[in-house]
Design a protein around this nucleic acid. Structure first.
Lengths: 258, 258
DNA sequence: GGCGGGCGACGTACGCCGTACGCCCACGTT
DNA sequence: AACGTGGGCGTACGGCGTACGTCGCCCGCC
């Protein structure tokens, strides 16, 4: 028999919270806490002040409630974050997918980017585990619709989605880092660079790494103009879609025997 | 005049540490601490026990030294992590790049993946800022060599690299999450899934999300076979390279006027 | 109308973390 | 031989997540 382990993770409990298997008790008095209210408050805090500011004490405070009261509805912070994530997925639009597969995937990429822009804390939330909430499933199902009927295998469909969403997340993370550095230091990207460049040149032996210097400067100037991350997103997205088109074309000809 | 801000970040100090602008004092007695020894100990801890186990106390302990002694050489934990990252970059191989651009980029992708596999903590280290150490620069310069001479603009070269490395990081993160979940829960991916699936089916109304269920199951079985992340990496890498080849081909014809 | 049980809310406390601050003492210098 | 400098460190503070035990209110029952 395996030893007990920490086993903080009780699947039944965690999933029950994600799926809200719980009639709202009508104990009408008191603050009337609930998973929903807690999650909404937590998301508000994280949106406004970042993930570092999201503490259990802060959540209780935001609800006008003691810190430990939150634990009545949520087993711990990890589970709270999980529900926050699933809730955020639930807010996403799921319009009927129009156009060809490329337009559909592009739309999905942009919707996901918008999600991360609205909730940058999602980019830093350590999940270590798929969330398995209702909204994640709905999102997954919806997004699979964009790559259905192209002759891809199930595993390929999943891989295509993973690739596109991975690119979105990478880009969003880069963009988000720029934003919260500016908030933390009170300097713009350009100002930060200008405060570091002279020191860097001091250490760098002149003439070393010419390529890196030239390209870095070029890219850095784009960043200074504050559209670096956006460019990386657009450029990468088109490349990724181009790459996917190769497989799609392969499958299309393969499935149409002459 | 802008108010002072927190300004924990002193560029001169941080960069000086990264570039080791400091003769090793010959105060031969005592433990003989140094930035190098501290960084090496810290990396050992993080490699062996993960980033969560990397505490300043733990680092001191590993060196047989008081916690606060570490602060003599490093202003804080953030800076320590920055030097750790730059040091890890320094360990990477930088072989002469052979073959066509595609082979070169592929090689770079695999080298970076190996780096992340050796030092998974790099995937979780919050930097919020490029490290600007000597080894990052060397790495950047080396990797730019893979996309030089293709007719791309400087900004495009940077974007190509960003795209490829972003994909590597995404894939590595996914793989790493699988690994440390298994460590945390003591279950394999398959076992974890099997302990959750029955509960999930309880909540899910039968017949809902047929596509998601089917594809998820297919992909999940791959994960159970423990090669899901590897597949995602390979599949995505080829797609990304295919996509890049489109731009490369464009530039090649454009730069060869008839 | 009275009452008892259950549960939501919470106060306190513990063991962690990063790190500010100031002391001490061994050394290289004079 | 005396000195002062700086490396090493002990203590302490504020903040975190959260285990645990208690209290008082509301609801269903008699």
């Amino acid at each position: 028999m395996a030893s007990e382990r920490k086993a903080t993770a009780d699947p039944a409990r965690s999933l029950a919270i994600l799926w809200r298997t719980r009639e709202p008790t009508s104990r009408s008095a008191g603050p009337g806490l609930s998973v929903d209210r807690i999650v909404r408050a937590a998301i508000d805090v994280a949106d406004a002040e970042g993930l570092d500011a999201l503490t259990m004490r802060r959540v209780g405070e935001a609800l006008g409630v003691g810190t430990m009261s939150v634990y009545t509805y949520v087993p711990g912070k990890a589970e709270l974050v999980a529900v926050m994530i699933d809730t955020a997925y639930g807010e996403m639009p799921r319009p009927a997918l129009e156009g060809d597969w490329r337009a559909r995937l592009e739309r999905i990429a942009r919707d996901n980017l918008a999600l991360y822009q609205r909730h940058p804390w999602m980019l830093r939330a350590e999940t270590t585990r798929p969330v398995l909430g209702p909204h994640l499933l709905a999102k997954y199902d919806h997004e699979l619709g964009a790559v259905a009927g192209l002759g891809l295998t199930d595993v390929e469909m999943d891989a295509v989605l993973t690739l596109v969403l991975g690119h979105v997340k990478s880009s969003a993370r880069a963009a988000s880092e720029v934003v919260d550095l500016e908030r933390e230091t009170g300097m713009t990207e350009g100002q930060w660079w200008q405060s570091h460049a002279p020191w860097l040149e001091t250490f760098l032996t002149p003439g070393a790494y010419p390529t890196a210097s030239r390209v870095g400067t070029a890219a850095g100037q784009q960043h200074g103009a504050a559209y670096g991350p956006e460019y990386a997103f657009e450029f990468g997205l088109q490349r990724v879609l181009d790459g996917i088109s190769v497989v799609v074309a392969e499958r299309a000809t393969a499935s149409q025997p002459g």
